[in-house]
């Protein structure tokens, strides 16, 4: 009797897995721009984790990988043209790119937008954006756990997320996080240099 119950449970499991696989495959193949199939980050739990690498096209159609910026501090900002709070912080990001770019900051805006490339190009031009804008894919937002917009991730020169924020925060908070990442980067570089000498 126990043997039968166990066998039935195994059969039920096999059938359930087959149904699950069928449901998954019926949804069609998901294209992903995320590189290396990392475990998706949970919202508000990105701090301290390695930033998932991805490859997306910029507004000229050139492929850009996050890892291309290794060695720079990256402010990764998910946004959309329909997002009012995103519009509010864009001028701040323009100023901050100007101010901290020479120290090694690169701001990357990932447009999670269905409105099409032309609309994004027009919007970005109108806002005077001076930093890199990429045409986003949902898979990248999902990999970062970006459930809302704007979603901002502060990534150090080694590709580690040192902090993140969902929604509009103050300019001061954004700037503090940029400074923190630049300082931490210097500290890490110094530590790495000392280890190499010893």
């Amino acid at each position: 009797m126990k043997r039968n119950a166990l066998a039935i449970l195994v059969i039920a499991l096999v059938v359930a897995v087959m149904i699950y696989a069928g449901v998954r495959s019926s949804r069609g193949p998901k294209t992903t721009a995320v590189i290396g199939n990392p475990e998706p980050l949970q919202p508000n739990e990105a701090k301290g984790k390695q930033a998932p690498d991805f490859s997306l096209q910029d507004l000229d159609g050139r492929p850009v990988k996050l890892s291309d910026y290794r060695g720079k501090a990256v402010l990764l900002n998910f946004w959309a043209t329909f997002c009012g709070p995103c519009k509010e912080e864009m001028p701040w990001l323009v100023e901050l790119q100007k101010q901290y770019g020479p120290q090694g900051l690169q701001i990357i805006g990932v447009a999670l937008d269905d409105s099409g490339k032309d609309t994004i190009v027009k919007y970005v031009k109108q806002m005077g954006v001076n930093y890199t804008i990429l045409q986003g894919q949902d898979s990248v937002g999902d990999a970062y756990g970006a459930i809302g917009l704007p979603a901002t991730y502060y990534i150090d020169r080694n590709g580690k997320i040192i902090d993140s924020a969902l929604g509009l925060v103050s300019r001061g908070e954004i700037e503090d996080n940029i400074k923190k990442s630049l300082v931490e980067d210097k500290a890490q570089t110094a530590s790495a240099g000392a280890k190499a000498k010893s």
Binding site: M1, N4, A5, I8, L9, I11, A12, L13, V15, A16, I19, Y20, V23, R24
Partner: peptide, 24 residues
């Protein structure tokens, strides 16, 4: 025990599918 066993099987299968379906 056949009927009882079949019922158990159906119940186990239903619960598993319902769980998977809800999660997905």
């Amino acid at each position: 025990a056949t009927l009882r066993t079949l019922k158990s099987f159906a119940l186990a299968l239903f619960l598993l599918i319902a769980t998977i379906g809800f999660a997905a």
